[in-house]
């Protein structure tokens, strides 16, 4: 539970930080999509160059970003190995039951790069945007989905409440853990099954208390006139400024470059 880094925000005064969260969300999404179309070294070079330029502009230390990426290392490794050994094609080398093909090696390298850039781009976004603004952007960005009766406002509200309660619940987990340890519970002993079982006395009180909290919070929200998204105004409404338009234009130029490179090579 400790060291949760989802939506970790890095406070700084960069041009990326002040951008409208919708710009960052939309561009990151488009960036990830175009990554999956990139199929040659030139396109990857451009994509990587763009990502690193963004890291530079954000003033977030690269070290910090890379440290946050350790979590996906395992996933990347599995993907790379699978691609390396299981892609049929021209044989490069083989030992025992494994064969590495040229196509496999290419594929693996591409997948690794793709994953790396994908996580890099999303990290830059979450590091330069407060979770609050991100949920705001999601609410606005998903607004068209309301046509399909998707409860957009409710989803955004749920996300922001969840974010607010993560620290509270993790503190509470720690408290319960210590209380159970004081009564002789052992959380770090035995095999996987035993450890999983030892979590029950931790999770049950946590669940009970979360439900109580939820019901308290619902009452408090109602007392403060909450009645859904209808007719709601905001303290910090999202407004596009000139700089946001410029950002969109720069990104459009990058996108055009990517498309040209993918088409030509």
């Amino acid at each position: 539970m400790r060291g949760i880094s989802i939506g970790q925000y890095y406070q700084a005064d960069s041009p990326l930080h002040v951008l409208d969260p919708r710009v960052k969300l939309l561009c990151t999404l488009a960036y990830i999509i175009i990554l999956f179309f990139a199929d040659n070294p030139f396109a990857y070079a451009l994509a990587a160059g763009f990502a690193f330029a963004m890291v530079f502009i954000s003033t977030v230390p690269l070290r910090l970003i890379l440290r946050g990426m350790r979590g996906v290392l395992f996933l990347a490794l599995v993907t790379v190995l699978f691609n390396l050994f299981l892609t049929p094609g021209e044989e490069l080398l083989s030992f025992w039951i494994f064969t590495v093909t040229r196509e496999g090696a290419e594929m693996a390298a591409m997948m690794a790069l793709r994953l790396f850039l994908l996580v890099l781009a999303s990290s830059v976004m979450t590091l330069t945007t407060t979770p609050n603004k991100l949920t705001d952007a999601l609410e606005r960005g998903m607004r068209p989905l309301r046509v399909f009766r998707v409860p957009v406002h409710e989803i955004a509200m749920m996300m922001s409440i969840a974010l607010r309660f993560i620290p509270i619940l993790s503190e509470e987990t720690e408290k319960i853990r210590k209380a159970q340890m004081a009564r002789g519970a052992a959380f770090d002993e035995g095999n996987v099954l035993k450890r999983a079982k030892s979590l029950i006395p931790l999770l049950v009180p946590l669940f009970v208390s979360s439900f109580r909290r939820a019901s308290d919070l619902a009452l408090a929200m109602e007392a403060r006139c909450y009645h859904g998204g209808k007719g709601r105004t905001r303290l910090h409404p999202l407004r596009y400024e000139a700089r946001d338009v410029i950002a969109y234009l720069i990104f459009a130029a990058f996108l055009a470059g990517m498309i040209v490179l993918i088409r030509v090579f």
Partner: peptide, 17 residues
């Protein structure tokens, strides 16, 4: 259990919003 906002001023704004 009654603070909704993640920032003090945003929580205070919740009612008027």
């Amino acid at each position: 259990n009654q603070i909704i906002g993640q920032v003090v001023e945003e929580d205070i704004a919740f009612g008027p919003e």
